[in-house]
């Protein structure tokens, strides 16, 4: 087993590409170290990307924001992103404890490929993209294309998600993320919902994206749920349709964290509540 901390993305890609055995990328480490401790992974190479300056940056660009792969929850929470995408930042800041927030990253959360990842429904609702570097050409894909199942991703050998792109916000836009956990802190989402809205001048929902977590093998983008509220002012009938569309999209499992019945019902409840917050944030009344 080797530990490497390259100082450039290129060097990291080279290390990962050349490694003949198993390799692991270390960003915040809040998932990787748990798996190492449990003996679930035994990599031959650990590549720490935190010493790569580009991965530590948050940049405001013409088209929105670029958040580096090694940006911690705390760094994100203190950044300019929060004003534009409060739902995304709040979601990322829900991961783990204050101790974990000093380490965890959104990209790590995404690439860990858990359907219950807190930041991912918010990122999917936001229409975020992942910038992927690797031995071949740099590519950019919607975040919902990264996870292909629990713990599995579409990344090829040698590929790293270098950063996430969040689009620029128009006027009258708002997003929100809510999760259900049995305690007030420290839990994995039993079910979760992210909603992003853009309103017209009259407060009618013009654009919407709704995503659900922990109700399927991957985070779901639920188009019918968005459709249920587009054109509405989020009246009760529209919200009920939203909840029904969300519940209909669920295909969860019974496990130690919750039941099929519970997840299906509460997915709708959370989507409604998140939509209301997003609507308010967008200036809707």
């Amino acid at each position: 087993m080797r530990y490497e901390a390259p100082s450039s993305t290129k060097a990291a890609v080279t290390l990962l590409t050349k490694e003949k055995g198993k390799s692991a990328i270390l960003a915040g480490g809040t998932d990787l170290l748990v798996r190492l401790k449990g003996g679930f992974v035994e990599p031959d190479l650990i590549v720490d990307i935190k010493r790569i300056p580009a991965m530590r940056e948050i940049k405001k660009t013409a088209s929105g924001f670029q958040v580096g792969a090694a940006v911690s929850g705390n760094e994100l929470g203190a950044s300019v992103v929060k004003k534009a995408w409060p739902g995304v930042v709040e979601a990322a800041n829900l991961i783990g404890s204050k101790q974990v927030q000093g380490r965890c990253t959104m990209v790590g959360n995404l690439c860990n490929a858990s359907p219950a990842a807190d930041s991912v429904p918010a990122l999917v609702a936001a229409g975020a993209h992942a910038v992927i570097v690797g031995p071949k050409k740099k590519r950019t894909v919607p975040v919902e294309k990264i996870a292909t199942g629990p713990g599995r991703t579409s990344l090829a050998k040698g590929e790293i998600v270098e950063s996430l792109l969040l689009p620029k916000r128009p006027a009258r836009a708002g997003d929100a993320y809510l999760r259900f956990i049995p305690r007030s802190e420290m839990d994995i989402a039993v079910v979760s919902a992210g909603v992003s809205l853009v309103l017209d001048a009259k407060g009618v929902v013009k654009e919407a994206r709704v995503a659900l977590g922990a109700v399927a093998p991957t985070v779901l983008l639920v188009a019918p749920a968005a459709k249920a509220i587009i054109g509405s002012k989020l009246d009760d009938a529209a919200l009920d349709k939203l909840a029904a569309a969300c519940s209909a999209a669920c295909s969860p499992i019974d496990d130690k964290r919750g039941t099929i019945e519970f997840r299906t019902k509460v997915a709708g409840v959370l989507a409604k509540r998140a939509a209301k917050i997003a609507y308010q944030r967008a200036g809707g009344k």
Binding site: G29, T30, K37, I46, K50, Q99, V100, R103
Partner: peptide
């Protein structure tokens, strides 16, 4: 941080 979630090497 939790020191159990940080590598010594880091």
């Amino acid at each position: 941080v939790c020191s159990c979630l940080v590598l010594g090497a880091e």
